[in-house]
Design a binder for these strands. Structure first.
Lengths: 177, 177
DNA sequence: GTCTATACCCCGATAGAC
DNA sequence: GTCTATCGGGGTATAGAC
């Protein structure tokens, strides 16, 4: 679903690639495709949260850590031949009206990631309001740059997003000490 | 397709809502669903390009114009009940592997929008390299914030994106005069 | 150019043997 | 719990009358 989206991915395809039978899938996911999608998003949520935690722990300076994060995302995306984008976006996009539970799971993922950045910024001494606001834009920008990188098959959007986010963060550190 | 994505939107649904018969659709779009999707993306491309042109012309200061742009995007998104997001993203996402032409049209749209921001920044006296790089991040951030706003059903990501992009742009104006 | 009918296929979901 | 068979419906696309 990360690659093909909710509607583009069939349960039969999933069961085949997983080496399970169709009956097994419906045994463990009685809620059908919707439940499967929610679990897929939660899985992607945890996955990216772990990645983000690792990257944020990689440098004391939050600006430096975020910039490294963006670069790594670009490298990983290229390695996947521009196919493995955000594990939440593709699944959630387009299902908003039909399946609120899916959208809710996606919102939770975004909120968790934001929380991780927020905590890092506060730990580095940023004002709470600044940290909260900056965390929003850091996630938004990473998300958008990942999208742009995927569409244009280039690491450039993510590289520049890293550079600019770092400058923005440093600007706020100086602005409200 | 803007709302439901490529796979979530049926040609029968399109023909019904358009008041046309299925035969007519295939008469004017012999390339079938793929051709329809490419034209839909080109349409969204022009639509947003006109919106962006209008917003950029609304203020001499690029930072101010971009901030107003983000706010307006948020208001429009709320007015649509968080349904009408970027007219390109939903259609293009998930079709990368199967339909390169769709992805190519999406890449062209992003490039055109970037070009508009780039031109505005250069016209305001920014160094060419700075303008080019900033245009990348402006589009990425607006795109990601629109996504985040849609998922969380809140204007906050777009409002903050506007604020932060404005500060970033002003920083560069001062940095390299 | 416009319309209806239909071919052909795969979808999600379920039934029921084992 | 695991598997196969199948249901009902909708998908894209086409054929061919008008």
């Amino acid at each position: 679903m990360q690659r093909q989206g909710y509607d583009g991915t069939g349960i039969k395809q999933i069961s085949k690639e997983a080496g399970a039978t169709l009956g097994s899938v419906y045994h463990f996911f009685p809620g059908g495709k919707q439940e499967l999608a929610v679990e897929a998003i939660r899985h992607g949520d945890r996955e990216f949260a772990e990645f983000l935690t690792r990257m944020l722990a990689g440098a004391d300076d939050p600006a430096e850590a975020i910039e490294a994060c963006a670069r790594t995302l670009g490298q990983d995306l290229r390695r996947s031949d521009w196919v493995d984008g955000c594990p939440v976006t593709a699944t959630a996009l387009g299902t908003a009206t039909r399946a609120p539970e899916i959208q809710h799971a996606a919102a939770e993922a975004f909120a968790r990631w934001r929380g991780l950045v927020d905590a890092k910024l506060r730990a580095a001494g940023f004002a709470h309001a600044d940290a909260r606001d900056l965390a929003h834009t850091v996630i938004s920008t990473l998300e958008g740059a990942e999208l742009a990188a995927q569409v244009s098959q280039s690491e450039t959007p993510l590289r520049l997003a890293g550079t600019h986010l770092a400058r923005l963060i440093r600007l706020y550190r100086k602005a409200t000490p």
